[in-house]
Write a protein that binds this DNA or RNA. Structure first.
Length: 364
DNA sequence: AATAGGTTCAACCGCCTATCG
DNA sequence: TCGATAGGCGGTTGAACCTAT
């Protein structure tokens, strides 16, 4: 048997608050306070509302000194940094942002910041009309979007820190930084309670953490996303950040990536897989249609679809003139674009957020 | 002009924890 | 110690609104 409801559901009003209800609640609390009992409050005021609903309304919209919309770049950075550090503990994050509510931040993250991180295009903000008087008032107060989150930009995600609004509107790639030469600095500010117990991430861990939070899975989680013919996994062991097994017919190749001391991603192929070698060499640097189809098909590894769908990882076939990064005379035929590595250094502060192109050497 | 689909965000739901008798 | 209750929180929902076709 479940617990008793906090109020008589049949006799309470639900849905948007009217200006009259807002006025009653606000006036009473400003004069008498909450009395330490939200459940009893609506009866005292004469509101047919659940006590929890009153509490929510007051905390999120009626109490003084609240800010709505217009998240600043600094706030964006703090939210992102804290999300990476502590996850979806919105109340903790809200405590670091005066005037913001957990609900506001949660909504802002879910509808805008997350998509921004994933490089998803967002339309211009809109005036949503006056279906709610308070909302309308807030819309007026915040102006016509000049300080809206859309006009602010995530400094940690900006390329060269100078992404224009126009560029943002037309970007096709994720907002991750584009190359190692333009590494931005994440001004991570871990709140005091977490400062000393903050994560001591290395490169892979911060990458892993962020990707997990955004929906990915890793081999260290005892989960191996598998696709028929393609097994892709991120490894949390050692310095290896990426490993992929490519199966073609009865043959297979295992490709792994590691971060070296120069923060560069290096690739290696392990084992001898004549079938794959023959395939690769025989195609002169191009995939056979079946293999290309395999890696670019819509059948992405389970649990990692979002990486592909959102453009965080983009399989591309590139031409044979592309410069390789592993120093051999090999020819890149398989290109992982826009993958991310980042560095946590000391005291839980992100110093660098590095983007690397992953390229796959042609079999020798 | 109609409408299907996408976006936003206020509000609700239900679970967990703290407090009190 | 235990049960009842309220507060707090994160996840989810759905209405309002916008855009694309």
């Amino acid at each position: 048997m479940g617990r008793a409801p906090c109020c008589d559901k049949a006799n309470v009003k639900k849905g948007p608050w009217s200006p009259e209800e807002d006025a009653k609640l606000k006036s009473y609390i400003e004069k008498h306070g909450t009395g330490g009992n939200w459940i009893a409050l609506p009866q005292k005021i004469g509101l047919k509302r659940c006590g929890k609903s009153c509490r929510l309304r007051w905390l999120n919209y009626l109490r003084p000194n609240l800010k709505h919309g217009g998240f600043s770049v600094e706030e964006d950075d703090i939210i992102c940094s804290l999300y990476v550090s502590i996850g979806s503990r919105w109340s903790v994050i809200a405590a670091q942002l005066p005037g913001r509510t957990d609900n506001d931040i949660k909504n802002y993250w879910n509808t805008r910041l997350k998509k921004k991180l994933l490089g998803k295009h967002r339309r211009e903000p809109r005036n949503r009309g006056n279906y709610n008087s308070v909302k309308q008032e807030n819309d007026v107060n915040r102006g016509s979007g000049t300080t809206d989150g859309d006009s602010s930009s995530l400094s940690l995600l900006q390329e060269n820190g100078s992404t224009t609004h126009h560029q943002e509107q037309h970007q096709q790639q994720p907002c991750w930084p584009q190359n190692i030469n333009n590494m931005p600095v994440l001004p991570l500010q871990v709140p005091l309670p977490y400062k000393n117990q903050g994560p001591c991430f290395n490169d892979q861990d911060s990458l892993k953490k962020l990707l997990i939070k955004l929906g990915g899975r890793f081999s260290g989680d005892s989960y191996h996303p598998t696709l028929d013919g393609l097994n892709l996994e991120f490894s949390s062991h050692g310095q290896q950040i990426y490993q992929e097994q490519v199966h073609v017919g009865s043959s297979a190749a295992c490709i792994s990536a590691t971060i070296n001391n120069n923060n560069e991603v290096q690739f290696a192929q392990t084992g001898q897989y004549p079938g794959v070698d023959n395939l690769v060499q025989g195609q002169g640097g191009n995939f056979t249609p079946s293999f290309e189809e395999m890696v670019s098909s819509s059948n992405y590894p389970d649990g990692l679809e979002f990486l592909y769908n959102e453009g965080m990882i983009d399989h591309k076939i590139i031409d044979t003139t592309t410069t390789t990064t592993w120093g051999e005379t090999s020819t890149p035929i398989y290109h992982h674009h826009d993958s991310l590595a980042s560095t946590y250094q000391g005291q839980g502060v992100i110093q660098e957020c590095v983007l690397q192109d992953f390229s796959y050497p042609r079999a020798q």
